[in-house]
Amino acid sequence: MIPSSQSGGPQRPLIYALLALFVLLHNDLWWWDDATFVLGLPIALTYHLGYCLAAMGWMALMIRFAWPKVIDHHPEDESAVEDHRSGGAA
């Protein structure tokens, strides 16, 4: 079986909702025409550089709290591989 999104802890829906919010934060339209320099770079460039670093932390959180569970062995595994490799549909 392919890892299911339904497995895992109760915090999973919250993590997914926050993920959607994090992705929306990519759209920093609020300083579209602002040429102020922050940390030596134009502000929008600094923001998106920070966004990349925040994405690292975000992914670490996803892995910690919402990692998909994989069933390592399935009763039908071996026959499925055989079915596929013999050229037919699995």
Binding site: F22, D28, L45, H48, Y51, A55
Partner: peptide
């Protein structure tokens, strides 16, 4: 500068997801 947000930081979150 917009190219960085357009492609790089977009890929930085979408690809790992």
């Amino acid at each position: 500068i917009g190219v960085f947000g357009l492609m790089a930081s977009a890929a930085a979150i979408v690809v790992p997801v």
